[in-house]
Design a protein around this nucleic acid. Structure first.
Length: 816
DNA sequence: TCTGTCTGCCCC
DNA sequence: ATTCTGC
DNA sequence: GCAGAATGGGCAGACAGA
């Protein structure tokens, strides 16, 4: 059976109705009556669909006239392509819904929200439709048809869960909904469940295949909702730069779940410790609860299945809640949703709120699946098709382009809309979805490197450069000739945090005749202009985040520019670092203490690098960034996301390093794959003079699976009911406390003043102790007793020796 | 108005 | 942020 | 080597409740 163009689709849909009815009757006798009903209603719909082409063509023309903005956008796209040759999804989809999509997001939300509301309040509409006698087929009026479109999601029998794994899966036939009907959220959940089952070789490919099938169904049946579906899969409700926080964390979720299933929060916690994940807790609560409450509910009325639209809108409402009682409002939405959801649906709703799908597939996999879906539709390839060499290559190109666009221009909505338009011609995607001032580009990241030798090997036969790695906040600074926007590493708009930088740029660049606009990549660092020294990261972090006033800034910053990715309407993404660096130096003038080029040297000499590394640490940096200059040095976040290397002092295996010997005195139960074990431990140093243990950090990384389990077992007979009287803590809550029993060797990057830990508290200022930044386990030490652990005074000495702290002491300005 | 708790595709 | 693991 | 999933410290901001 063919698919992939609209003609084929409608051709299919004619055949489909009979086949579907038959197969369902045959396959599942239990549901015979239901299936029959389903099949019949099906028939209605298919007939409708058949009629649609004529009708909706005119509708389409009409609304295209109405909808100027979108029409324009589309024209841009289509203008540059030859409409005839490339069958685009736009021409494929005859649905008037697609045009409806033009409404802006807010409007759309409002309307669909109210739709969902009315539908959940009473299932009258769907009942009506379900109970409609079949002889009314032909009489279906315009209005009830509309209603069917909006609400009727029930008709298609949904007991085809395994179809997603079926070799002969058909994205149209095997989706649990019909053309133009609401996408059922359960369909996505089924997909997640199947994805989660995959392991072993080829599992990634199968995961991608499964999700691509779902995306194909949605693209073909209800293209409006591809965006929502994809966004759900990557756990977002809006692009990153439109900061849309959910405001729901573990505590609220636990409360909501307990409220929903009539258990105490303590019971929920127990359940969480047993199951390892709140999603599972919710789904288990649902399925056990079913026996009692749901039974009667079912008798009373068949609940309409939950749609993707409703799910997504609920999530948006949760994020939108603010002000007084917003927490209660969020809770209310969650509880209501959970009450109506099936176990799987509740599970994934909760997991979305936890921002973790836990199915072994995350954004990269989802994106590959989306690419595959669009590719197969554009190229008319069936699911599970074994690709030819050439098809493989084409898919790779497809995927590469999509990845690249999503990195340069992470406006998911527009990328998906554009994909619908361009069909096969993937090269057109980058014409539209390209780096744009005002839209953050995903930043290049660096990979930790253990030694200079490793760097030399990695970059042999290439020229490379070393830069200081400043300890500050990443800042991607956009200037469009008028406004300045600053984005964080995670593409969050942080402009409000830096009015001083905004002012500086406006002031200096407006005078420049050579710079019209730009995007530059930098590290923003707390800086003391008087002493010309870098200040600790911790001080930078005390800056306000929103609505910072110029005259209230007490922590001054310096911008250290290290890359330029766009200048004067021209993208530099494809140029070499050498060229980009040259451009920076041409275009920008340094202003000491405010706006500087990142310190760098170009050398391949080990000793010089070593020296440079030490110098960087001495002035308060974290270490070095090492980057190729010519070969393979373009700014391409898409190709390899960790093309740069970072070299920090604490990475180095050589030398004694600054490791600490610490004693685990408490632990926290693990979640996810660490369920049943301890996920993290509380560590303390030993104060010989005072004969007490002083806390310094928790630790949860550096354990191999084996060691993690061994540690759990080791501590089973070391558990004590209360913290010992010689444990100095600040009202610290832990799941279990231990006798001091063992010493662990711990590495960290920095020591810093801590509001919660007590290490060296009597030597600091009696209120705040010292904490360890980036702690990780190196090894278990059998040769030391707990009382031999590192002492607080030793730790305090190291703390004082740290460059940035010393800088501050020099200044006589004891910040804390 | 003050204080404590929770949250963050937080920032690192 | 760091680290480990499966592929 | 990548992608995913465990986990760290500590800050401001938002909100709930006293």
């Amino acid at each position: 059976m063919k698919q992939g163009t609209i003609k084929n689709f409608f051709g299919n849909s004619q055949k489909k109705k009979e086949e579907l009815g038959e197969s369902n009757l045959g396959s599942d006798k239990k549901c015979a009556t239901q299936s029959q009903k389903g099949a019949e209603t099906n028939g209605q719909n298919s007939k409708e669909s058949q009629q649609k082409p004529d009708e909706s063509k005119s509708q389409q023309e009409e609304s295209q006239l109405k909808e100027k903005p979108k029409a324009q956008k589309r024209r841009q796209i289509i203008d540059s392509s030859d409409d005839e040759e490339v069958p685009s999804l736009a021409t494929m989809s005859i649905s008037n819904k697609q045009i409806k999509k033009v409404e802006n997001e807010n409007q759309k939300n409002e309307s669909s929200k109210s739709e969902t509301k009315s539908s959940t309040d009473s299932s009258n509409l769907s009942k009506q439709i379900l109970e409609k006698p079949k002889n009314e087929d032909e009489k279906l009026s315009q209005s009830s048809k509309k209603a069917a479109e909006q609400q009727d999601t029930k008709k298609k029998p949904t007991n085809n869960l395994r179809k997603l794994l079926d070799k002969h899966f058909d994205p149209i036939e095997d989706a649990p909904f019909y053309k133009d009907q609401e996408v059922l959220f359960g369909y996505l959940c089924d997909g997640f469940e199947r994805v989660n089952e995959q392991e072993g070789k080829n599992s990634k490919a199968i995961q991608i295949e499964i999700m691509s099938k779902i995306f194909k169904s949605i693209i073909l049946l209800n293209p409006d909702q591809v965006y929502e579906a994809y966004m759900f899969c990557i756990l977002k409700i809006a692009p990153d730069y439109e900061s849309n926080e959910l405001g729901v964390g573990r505590e609220i979720l636990q409360k909501a779940i307990s409220n929903c299933c009539g258990k105490s929060v303590t019971q929920i916690r127990d359940s969480l410790n047993k199951l390892g994940d709140l999603g599972k807790v919710a789904s288990e609560a649902k399925s056990t609860q079913k026996n009692i409450t749901n039974y009667f509910q079912k008798q009373a009325k068949e609940k309409p299945p939950i749609t993707l639209n409703r799910t997504f809108n609920d999530l948006k409402s949760i994020a939108a809640a603010s002000g007084k009682d917003s927490t209660a409002e969020r809770e209310r939405i969650i509880i209501k949703y959970m009450n109506e959801a099936k176990p799987d649906e509740a599970c994934y709703f909760i997991r979305f709120l936890e921002q973790n799908l836990k199915i072994g597939a995350a954004e990269k996999t989802m994106q590959a699946a989306l690419s595959k879906a669009f590719f197969e539709i554009a190229h008319n390839i069936k699911s599970n098709h074994v690709y030819t060499e050439q098809q493989n290559q084409l898919l790779e190109e497809f995927n590469f382009n999509i990845t690249r666009c999503l990195c340069e221009f992470p406006n998911y909505y527009q990328v998906i809309e554009t994909l619908k338009q361009i069909g096969k011609d993937i090269s057109k995607l980058l014409d539209i979805c390209k780096i744009t001032i005002g839209v953050p580009c995903k930043p290049m990241l660096a990979k930790p490197t253990k030694s200079i030798q490793v760097i030399l090997e990695r970059f042999k036969d290439m020229t490379f450069t070393c830069e200081y790695k400043y300890d500050g906040l990443r800042g991607q600074i956009h200037y469009d000739g008028k406004d300045v926007t600053i984005f964080s590493r995670n593409l969050e708009n942080m402009t409000q945090m830096y009015p001083d930088i905004v002012e500086f740029i406006k002031k200096h660049v407006s005078q420049s005749k050579t710079v019209k606009n730009f995007i530059l990549d930098s590290e923003i660092v707390a800086f003391d202009k008087n002493t010309n020294k870098i200040r600790p990261f911790q001080q930078l972090a005390t800056r306000g985040r929103v609505n910072v006033k110029l005259d209230e800034i007490d922590i001054k910053v310096c911008v250290f520019m290290f890359d330029l990715i766009y200048i004067n309407d021209q993208s530099l993404l494809q140029t070499t670092l050498q060229e980009r660096r040259q451009k920076i130096q041409e275009c920008f003038v340094q202003e000491p203490g405010e706006f500087c080029f990142a310190e760098h040297i170009n050398t391949e000499d080990v000793e010089q690098i070593q020296e440079f590394l030490e110098k960087s640490v001495k002035v308060g940096c974290e270490g070095l960034m090492v980057k190729t200059l010519e070969t393979n040095s373009t700014y391409e976040p898409a190709k390899r996301s960790f093309k740069w290397l970072k070299l920090k002092k604490d990475y180095l295996d050589s030398g004694l390093g600054d490791t600490l010997d610490l004693v685990p005195i408490a632990a926290f139960k693990g979640t996810g794959k660490r369920v049943g074990l301890y996920g993290a431990y509380l560590l303390a140093c030993y104060n010989e003079d005072m004969e007490r243990y002083e806390t310094i950090c928790k630790i949860g990384t550096g354990f191999s699976d084996e060691i993690l389990e061994a540690c759990y077992k080791f501590f089973q007979d070391k558990i004590i009911p209360q913290p010992q009287s010689d444990y100095l803590t600040k009202d610290f809550k832990a799941d279990v406390w231990f006798k001091p029993s063992v010493v662990w060797e711990i590495k960290g990057a920095d020591l810093q003043i801590s509001p919660v830990y007590t290490c060296a508290i009597s030597e600091t200022n009696q209120e705040k102790g010292i904490g360890l930044r980036f702690p990780r386990l190196i090894r278990v030490r059998d040769d030391k007793d707990p009382v031999d652990a590192t002492s607080p005074s030793f730790i305090y000495d190291i703390y004082k020796q740290q460059a940035v702290v010393a800088n501050d002491f020099d200044d006589g300005d004891d910040f804390y």
